[in-house]
Amino acid sequence: MSNNDIYEALVNLEEKKVKQLVSQSLEKGMAPEEIMEQLQKALIEIGDRFEREECYVPDLIYSGAIMKDAVELLGPKIKEKGAEAKGKVVVGTVYGDIHDIGKDLVVMLLQNAGFDVVDLGVDVKPEKFVEAIKESGAKVVGMSCLLTISFDAISKTVKAIEDAGIRDQVSIMIGGAPVTELVKDKTGCDYYGKDAIHGLRFVSEAYS
């Protein structure tokens, strides 16, 4: 088995093979950190492919599920280590909107990339966002929506962040099917991520 086998198997979305290789590598005494590194590298590659439109949302979801099972196998040690986060991010779907697929995808990508995510769930009131930013000290907040009617909730959340006096501490990114650059500008946000990968890129830059 070469060192890249786990990476290759995950990149190719070979679910059974990933499991098998991870178990075998652990038995052979490979360090969990090393395995984790390969898995994370594979997810980065999948993200790159997604950006190049060589793979699609289902591939991200499937790779996330494979990753989750693999991390289970690595045991609690690596999970703790994984929690030495690169930074904190608050994420939620805005008030009045209960759609969670896009939001969950962003959460999964951020977590897999090593960020500590405060996931507020869906239908999140502006004051909840404010509270979570204050408590976590996150430098980035991500708002998701799927409905055009949610533009108003985005504006209100931005305003609540301003009113709380913490606008300078936090970068605000938005995403979701109806969001555009114009929506970003009109609602006073800092960044519009056209997909989950762009959201991850933005957070990574904010913390680099």
């Binding site: 009045g96 209960i98 969670d100 697929i101 969950d104 409905l147 009617i149």
Partner: peptide, 20 residues
């Protein structure tokens, strides 16, 4: 479904809630 006036604000349209 999440229905306005039940699970949602009366001013927000109904939405489909997909099992996760």
């Amino acid at each position: 479904y999440k229905v306005p006036g039940i699970e949602l604000d009366p001013n927000v349209g109904f939405q489909y809630f997909e099992p996760a």
